[in-house]
C-alpha cells in the first residue's frame, strides 16, 4: 500500500518486538509482576528467616487458593466486559448443597465425597446459568443480574441451613483436599494451580478463549461475524459459576464448615485480584498469568504484614492502593498506545 505511507506515526507497536522474551510472555502483567517481586523483596529484607521460606510461601498459596479458583472464572467474565458479583454467595450456596447431599447419603466414604463434589459443581453451574440467562435473555446488566444472585444465593443458603453452618465433612475430603499433600505441596494448592493452568490455556490457545476476547472487545463485530454472542456469554457465566461451586467444596473441605458468613466480600476481592492482574474492566484485555499474580499480591501482603508485626488490617489499605495504582498504570499504557 504505497499510498499509506503517511501512517508512519503508528509504529508504536514496533518496540514491543525488541523487548525481552519474559515481558512478552507476561504481556500486560509485566508491571504487576514487578510489583509482586518488589513486595516479596521488601518483606524478605524486613524478616528473611520467617518470610522467605518454602513453608511460608506454601501458606501464602493455601490462603490464595480459593480466591484464585474464583478469579480464573472472573477473568473470563471480565474479559467479556461483564462482571460477576455473585461468586462468594455461590461458593457458600454450593458448599451448603454439597453438605446437605453428603449428609443425606450417609456422610462418610469416597462415594459420598464424590457425590458432594458433583453437587457443588452442579449448584455453582446452575447459578452461573441463571446469571447468564438473566443477562442474555432478560437483558439485565451483569452488575445488577449478579448482584441479584449474590443476594438470592446467600439467602437460599441461609434458608436451607436455617442459618446454622453445616459441619459434617467426610474425613476422606478433609484428608485430601482439606489438608492432604502430594510431594509436600497441599492438594488444595495443586487444584487451584491446575485450574489456573487450564484456564490460561483455554484463554490463550482455544477458540473459546479467542471468542471471549472478541465478545468483550466488540460484541457487535463478533455478532456480525457469525459468533453466537449470547450463547458464548452464557457459557462464560456458567463456567464462572462452576468454579465458584468448586471453590465451595474446597472451602468446605478446608475449613470443615460451610462458613455462611465468611464470604460476603469475596466478589470484590476476586474482582480486585483480576483487575490488579491487568484485565480490563471494559473487556477485551486480560491474561491468566496476570490473574495469578493479582491474586498473590493481596495474599502476600496479608501474610508479610503480619510477619513483620503490623496489624493485618493494613492489608486492606495496601490492597486498595495497589488496585488503584494497577488500574492507573494500565490506563497510562493504554493512552500511550492508542494515541496516534
Amino acid at each position: 500500500m504505497t499510498t499509506d505511507t503517511l501512517d508512519a506515526t503508528d509504529t508504536v507497536a514496533a518496540p514491543a518486538r525488541r523487548r525481552l522474551k519474559v515481558p512478552r510472555l507476561l504481556g500486560s502483567a509485566t508491571d504487576i509482576t514487578l510489583i509482586l517481586i518488589l513486595i516479596v523483596a521488601v518483606f524478605a529484607v524486613l524478616d528473611f528467616s520467617s518470610f522467605f521460606t518454602a513453608q511460608n510461601f506454601t501458606q501464602i498459596l493455601i490462603n490464595a487458593a480459593l480466591l484464585l479458583v474464583m478469579a480464573v472464572g472472573a477473568t473470563f467474565v471480565l474479559i467479556t466486559g461483564g462482571v460477576d458479583l455473585s461468586v462468594g454467595s455461590v461458593l457458600v450456596f454450593s458448599g451448603v448443597i454439597a453438605g446437605e447431599v453428603m449428609q443425606w447419603l450417609g456422610g462418610e466414604g469416597w462415594g459420598v465425597s464424590i457425590a458432594g463434589i458433583a453437587a457443588a459443581l452442579l449448584a455453582g453451574t446452575a447459578w452461573g446459568c441463571v446469571n447468564g440467562l438473566v443477562i442474555t435473555k432478560l437483558r439485565v446488566p451483569p452488575l445488577i443480574a449478579t448482584l441479584g444472585s449474590y443476594g438470592a444465593a446467600q439467602g437460599l443458603a441461609q434458608i436451607i441451613t436455617n442459618g446454622n453452618d453445616l459441619k459434617d465433612v467426610p474425613s476422606e475430603l478433609v484428608d485430601t483436599i482439606g489438608f492432604g499433600r502430594v510431594f509436600g505441596i497441599p492438594i488444595l494448592v495443586i487444584i487451584a494451580l491446575v485450574v489456573a493452568l487450564i484456564g490460561g490455556l483455554v484463554l490463550w490457545a482455544t477458540r473459546y478463549g479467542r471468542r471471549t476476547y472478541a465478545v468483550g472487545s466488540n460484541a457487535e463485530a463478533a455478532r456480525r461475524s457469525g459468533i453466537n454472542v449470547d450463547r458464548h456469554l452464557l457459557k462464560v457465566y456458567a463456567v464462572a459459576g462452576m468454579l465458584a461451586g468448586l471453590a465451595g467444596i474446597l472451602s468446605f473441605a478446608k475449613f470443615g464448615t460451610t462458613t455462611l458468613a465468611g464470604h460476603a466480600t469475596d466478589n470484590l476481592n476476586v474482582i480486585a485480584a483480576v483487575v490488579i492482574g491487568g484485565t480490563s474492566l471494559f473487556g477485551g484485555v486480560g491474561t491468566m498469568i496476570g490473574t495469578v499474580v493479582g491474586t498473590l499480591i493481596p495474599a502476600t501482603l496479608a501474610n508479610g504484614l503480619v510477619i513483620v508485626g503490623l496489624n493485618s488490617f493494613w492489608r486492606d489499605f495496601a490492597v486498595g492502593v495497589v488496585l488503584v495504582a494497577a488500574v492507573y498504570l494500565d490506563q497510562l499504557r493504554r493512552r500511550s498506545r492508542s494515541s496516534r
Partner: peptide, 24 residues
C-alpha cells in the same frame, strides 16, 4: 464491509481476519 468497521479492536490482524471462522 460495514461503515463502522466491525473489527475487534483488541485482537490482532489475523484474529480479526478469522473472527467467527477460526481455524482449528
Amino acid at each position: 464491509v460495514y461503515q463502522d468497521l466491525a473489527l475487534a479492536p483488541d485482537l490482532d490482524t489475523p484474529a480479526n481476519l478469522f473472527l467467527g471462522r477460526e481455524r482449528l
